[in-house]
């Protein structure tokens, strides 16, 4: 039962990483798009792609927090009392991002939009970085069972920094692929070339960071290194292969195909981490079963998860169908 709850929790983490990752990456390209006039068109496309999915991302984050504190309370408290600095900063970043999103659409004057836009873009880069350092701190065993671990060393360390940088780079890569596909679907050739170029550059950067990561993990988190090459290996390979395939298909295939491969690439990294860490929740010292809440609570979490899926998935499909129908009518 505790493993099931862990799978549910981790499903939330993976979904958050994929959906929010694409979102954060879009913010990265917003930040680097240049001045108001030069960056206007890429920003317009970014706005269009980010808007509809934004709320779903928030839901996944809250979902992860809630499942964590309900199903694994002691681990939640341990993480929160150790990694409170990056988590607090990530929380502030999310507020900035969210309000930037909430307000920018309503504002009409460029100067106002630029202020909210800058808040949105900067926090889009910092937030995944801090989440990456949190993942690195947990994976490298720097969160003690009882919490209250090192306030700085728990997230300023080689594995955490690797996690942070990798998170930003992967987000930017996924977003660039999605935006290329989106521009292609809308037949905006200038933007398609613009983002394809950036997707290629980011894929190169991701490759370099990953190779550096091999040495970093070997030196700093030996157990994680071994596990990633053991049970985690298929997912790591899958992630790299999917990432390359997405690039190769960017020009030729139907836009949906490279999009799917990019998502698999991002998800593969996260799943690889999860598999490498199993059966531990924190580093290699706190087992999932030992951190779990009493059985009725775990059952409740599972029931809530199923109920959420049964209620929300059809509603989401309804929304999607309506929007697609509307788009056809407008075209």
């Amino acid at each position: 039962m505790s493993t099931l709850a862990a799978v549910i929790l981790f499903t939330g983490v993976v979904l958050y990483a994929i959906f929010a990752g694409a979102d954060f990456g879009a913010g990265f390209w917003d930040l680097t798009a240049g001045g108001a006039e030069r960056g206007r068109r890429p920003r317009e496309l970014i706005d269009h792609s980010v808007g509809p999915v934004w709320e779903a991302n928030h839901v996944w984050l809250i979902f992860c927090l809630v499942v964590m504190w309900t199903a694994f309370p002691p681990a939640f408290a341990a993480i929160m009392t150790t990694l409170y600095v990056p988590l607090g900063l990530a929380a502030l970043g999310i507020v900035l991002r969210g309000s930037g999103f909430a307000f920018r659409k309503v504002l009409v004057r460029t100067a106002e939009q630029r202020v909210t836009g800058a808040a949105f873009a900067i926090s889009s880069v910092l937030t995944p970085f801090f989440f990456g350092t949190v993942a690195g701190g947990i994976a490298s065993g720097r969160v003690p069972d009882g919490g209250n671990g090192e306030a700085v060393g728990s997230w300023v360390n080689p594995t955490s920094l690797l996690g942070g940088v990798l998170a930003v780079v992967v987000c930017a890569y996924v977003a660039a692929v999605l935006l290329t596909a989106d521009a292609r679907a809308r037949r905006l050739q200038d933007l398609e070339a613009y983002f394809r170029h950036r997707a290629l550059v980011m894929a190169g950067v991701a490759g370099v960071v990953s190779i550096a990561g091999i040495f970093i993990l070997h030196a700093d988190a030996r157990h994680l290194f071994d596990q990633l090459l053991g049970p985690g290996l298929p997912f790591v390979v899958l992630s790299a292969a999917a990432g390359l395939t997405a690039l190769a298909l960017l020009r030729s295939a139907v836009p949906r195909v490279p999009r799917g491969f990019a998502v698999v690439a991002a998800g593969g990294v996260v799943i690889g981490w999860g598999v490498a860490q199993y059966p531990y929740l924190l580093g290699t010292h706190l087992r999932i079963a030992d951190a779990a809440a009493p059985r009725p609570t775990l059952v409740s979490v599972a029931v809530i998860f199923v109920a959420a899926a049964l209620l929300c998935v059809p509603s989401l499909i309804l929304l999607y169908v309506l929007q697609q129908r509307g788009r056809l009518e407008e075209a």
Binding site: W69, T70, S300, V301, I304
Partner: peptide
């Protein structure tokens, strides 16, 4: 609060999420 009573106190928040 969360570390000690999350197992009970957390459940309503899960429902709220839906």
């Amino acid at each position: 609060l969360m570390g000690r009573f999350g197992a009970a106190y957390g459940i309503p928040f899960g429902i709220e999420g839906i």
